[in-house]
Design a protein around this nucleic acid. Structure first.
Lengths: 160, 160
DNA sequence: ATAAAGATGGTATAATAATTCAATAAAAGT
DNA sequence: ACTTTTATTGAATTATTATACCATCTTTAT
């Protein structure tokens, strides 16, 4: 396990991905090679392959604009996530236990926190997630299939 | 100039593009070739080139999902309904997510908004809609049959 | 009716993006 | 320390997507 949380570490990838977000926000980037060039100018010499992977992780999309040009942009769900960036702190502060069975995930929270945590989970717009119900201290997540439930549970556990 | 407004004409391209929107709303399409195959099954035999052009015109985007797969989706700015009517503003301001399974549609809203959104949906007097139940942030719509659920979900998504 | 102009879509190919494979380095476990 | 695991990345390659070019069809104008 690497778990690069070390405060003193440079964490190249994360910084580069922030730079990518800045770049696509401030100018029209049409291709990954364009992005590669601009990144190099900003001090991040990386190849197209790495950019492809960054774009996947950042959930960026390539949209057509009038006139037949294309540019990269942040996807729908990413906007909402940024709007409520408190996901992580609410989540870690409130979640007690995560378990799953069949196509359901049960998230146990401290009393009164389930609604807030559930809103956080909803904001992620998980694919394969059919719906969520939150009581006072428990959230039920219903997924499309058993495997998705497992994946969501695993991911939530990794956040916690 | 062609301007195919002729009422009696079939207008292949437009119908095909609607079919594309339906397809990407109801299943996960990863590549244009996938889409080509599914379209052919639906009675629209077209090549990848045409799909590339349709995707540009429809402003569709390819997004990454957790697990490293990709799928096509409608872009952010693809709102079709007029901004002025009450339904639209309440709906877009409150609805977070729409999904369906079997003969049920689940509409997820920001906390506290589900009742208001549900009233909007009820006001449409959808035929094939059996009943609705709204909690604080989730609406369950029960339909007569599976296909109606799909249709309602697709239409609601196109509004959002 | 014939011509001109625009639209549509296929074929082939160019351009772009995703992935496989291997190398390296950093962490974690023993 | 040393072995193992995991993360990150580039080079090369494969896969996917966009487009240049051409043919065909529809509409509009003459």
């Amino acid at each position: 396990m690497k778990e690069n949380n070390t405060p003193g570490k440079s964490n190249v990838k994360e910084v580069r991905q922030k730079a990518i977000l800045d770049l696509i926000a401030s100018e029209k980037i049409a291709t990954q090679n364009d992005l590669s060039r601009r990144l190099e100018e900003s001090g991040f010499p990386v190849t197209q392959a790495t950019i492809s992977r960054d774009i996947r992780e950042l959930r960026l999309v390539k949209v057509a604009e009038a006139g037949g040009n294309y540019h990269y942009a942040v996807g729908k769900s990413e906007d909402k996530y940024q709007a409520s960036n408190k996901f992580h702190s609410i989540f870690t502060a409130s979640v007690v236990k995560i378990d799953y069975v069949n196509n359901m995930v049960v998230v146990t929270c401290y009393t009164g926190m389930a609604q807030a945590v559930c809103a956080c989970i909803d904001s992620l717009e998980w694919q394969g997630l059919v719906g969520t119900i939150a009581g006072d201290d428990t959230i039920l997540i219903i997924t499309r299939d058993d495997n998705t439930a497992k994946e969501i549970a695993t991911t939530l556990k990794s956040i916690k």
